[in-house]
């Protein structure tokens, strides 16, 4: 199998879907000749032309409005917002319209669209271009929220997202675009609501999302040398969430830590921690369920401070040790 980047894996899924399904098209700012802010759509204009790879004005409101309308009329639009932070301008269309239509019209219409949102910190893009607001989206009934952490997962989940008849919020981590892994050339689906155990372990279950999956795996490698074996679970899709895999793992390891990049306070990790506490895993807990998330601060521009604002590998190691008490 060949290795490709996270960015190319996403592109490959979109390209393959657009080749097989005329209804699929992509729209966004500078996605044509420029290839998008992170180059994800580079080359797509050449293959599919300006009808299906549509450059838009700098208006997330317009992009999302057009997408909702097109989706209701039978198209399957993919929206690229340059930075997930800009989704705020599109929220009325996404939350009040896209997420509600199928419900309010009793199923007479549906809104099959994929909102691609490059998110996360670590690239020196400061407070307005570095946020992780997936919890906002996960809070809204009617939206599917996906957060892939590997090129393999990104390709499979993108195909699933495009073919889903509901609005899908697809969080791409900017820091992962250049990460590589084995990705099959053929098309494949990854079902929604199926978590992936990225690494098996005995002493503690880390439930990590986005770029924190990679950091947790790095932490696991170092902890292994110190005799602490952690299990790393990537939910992959926040909505729907694979509760079963998480609970089973915690019953096995007796300890749970949720690691996420978003601000710890009111983040999606709180949701995962709560569901563990409410589950049958409670009686198997040997330590308080813990969260490790970002500091409640706007992401600083200063690279050192930016690093300090979100969990790093060392932070995960330290947190795990404080819980495992071995």
């Amino acid at each position: 199998m060949r290795e490709i980047t996270y960015a190319n894996a996403i592109k490959e899924a979109m390209v393959q879907e657009m080749r097989s399904n005329e209804d699929v098209f992509i729209l966004g700012e500078d996605i044509g000749v420029f290839g998008g802010a992170f180059g994800v759509t580079s080359g797509m204009l050449d293959e599919f032309g300006p009808e299906r790879v549509r450059n838009t004005p700098i208006s997330e409101s317009a992009i999302s409005g057009c997408a909702v309308g097109a989706a209701m009329m039978g198209m399957r639009p993919i929206l690229e917002l340059q930075f997930s932070d800009f989704v705020m301008i599109a929220l009325d269309n996404i939350v009040n319209q896209a997420a509600k239509m199928r419900y309010m019209f009793g199923g007479k219409t549906h809104v099959p669209m994929v909102v691609r949102l490059p998110s996360g910190s670590g690239l020196g893009m400061a407070a307005q271009h570095s946020q992780s607001l997936e919890a906002w989206m996960a809070h809204v009934p009617g939206l599917i929220v996906i957060q892939p952490s590997t090129p393999y997962d990104a390709k499979g989940l993108m195909k699933t997202a495009i073919n889903n008849d509901n609005p899908v919020i697809f969080y791409e981590h900017k820091g992962l675009y250049n990460s590589k892994s084995d990705v099959p050339e053929d098309e494949y689906d990854i079902p929604l609501g199926v978590a992936d155990v990225k690494k098996e372990g005995e002493d503690l279950t880390v439930i990590a999302t986005g770029i924190m999956v990679q950091r947790s795996l790095q932490a696991a490698e170092q902890l292994e040398k110190e005799g602490i074996s952690i299990e790393v679970i990537d939910p992959r899709t926040l909505v729907p969430l694979d509760k079963e895999t998480i609970i089973e793992s915690v019953i096995k390891t007796n300890r749970a830590l949720v690691v996420y990049e978003a601000v710890e306070r009111s983040g999606y990790g709180a949701e995962i921690a709560s569901l563990i506490g409410e589950s049958e895993a409670f009686d198997f807990l040997d330590a308080p369920i813990s969260r490790l998330g970002g500091i409640a601060t706007p992401i600083p521009y200063n690279p050192s401070l930016e690093k300090a604002a979100v969990p790093q590998v060392e932070d995960i190691i330290e947190k795990v040790k404080s819980i495992v008490q071995k």
């Binding site: 007796n254 409670f282 009686d283 198997f284 807990l285 040997d286 330590a287 008490q325 071995k326």
Partner: peptide
């Protein structure tokens, strides 16, 4: 911890006889 309590119950142990090694003297599974 919940599992320490559960284990102690299963083995008819009194938690009073066990010294906790966890934070604040918390009795853990180990």
């Amino acid at each position: 911890t919940p599992i320490a309590r559960r284990l102690a119950q299963q083995n008819n142990l009194s938690l009073e006889d066990i010294t906790g090694s966890g934070p604040m003297g918390r009795i853990q599974k180990i």
